[in-house]
Simulated assay, not measured.
Amino acid sequence: MTGAFRPAADTGVTVADDASVVYLARLPGGPLVVLEGPAARIWVEATTAPAEGWVARVAGAFDEPEEAVCADVDRFVVELQGQGFLEPVPAAGA
């Protein structure tokens, strides 16, 4: 089982033990990017199995309905992909 997304091949990632902070860097030269709060939660849930329902898990962490956060979550994931930090996990059998 995998997450919906994974770190890009040249992305170094460190997640705090309580998952409240995520440190990202494009290797080898950076820069270092720090994700906190909702940004860290989005990263953790997007990259943690199971892929199904990960946006709902983000919403649940903040006691919000999925529909209320979906657009913002999608926008942030697109931003992370554009910066080269995140890539989608291919569907099984694709």
Rank of each mutant, 00 (worst) to 15 (best):
G30S: 12
D18H: 11
E67H: 11
G53H: 05
F76G: 03
A40R: 04
T2Q: 12
E36C: 09
V34Q: 13
D72M: 09
A68C: 10
A39P: 03
E45A: 09
Y23F: 14
G12C: 01
F5M: 05
A9P: 11
R41E: 12
A71Y: 02
W54G: 05
P88D: 05
E67D: 15
A94F: 03
D10H: 15
G82A: 09
S20F: 01
E66L: 00
G30H: 07
I42R: 02
E67G: 04
P7N: 09
G3L: 02
A46L: 05
G12I: 01
A56M: 06
A4P: 03
A4D: 04
A61F: 06
A49F: 11
A56D: 14
F5E: 01
A40P: 03
P31R: 12
V58D: 01
V89F: 08
R75P: 01
E52C: 00
G29F: 15
V78M: 10
A19V: 11
A46I: 04
G93A: 09
G30N: 08
D17R: 15
G82H: 07
W43Y: 11
A59H: 04
A61Y: 08
T11R: 02
V22D: 04
R26V: 14
G12Q: 09
A56E: 15
L80N: 02
G12P: 04
P38W: 13
G93S: 06
G37H: 13
V55L: 05
A46M: 02
A94V: 12
M1N: 08
W43Q: 01
W43V: 03
F76I: 03
C70F: 11
P88G: 08
A19H: 14
V13M: 11
E36V: 15
A91H: 10
P90K: 08
E45V: 06
A71F: 03
P28Y: 10
P28M: 10
A51F: 05
W54L: 07
G53Q: 05
L86Q: 02
D74K: 12
F85K: 00
P31Y: 08
L32Y: 00
T2R: 14
S20V: 01
V34H: 06
V78Q: 14
E79V: 13
L86N: 02
S20Y: 00
F5I: 07
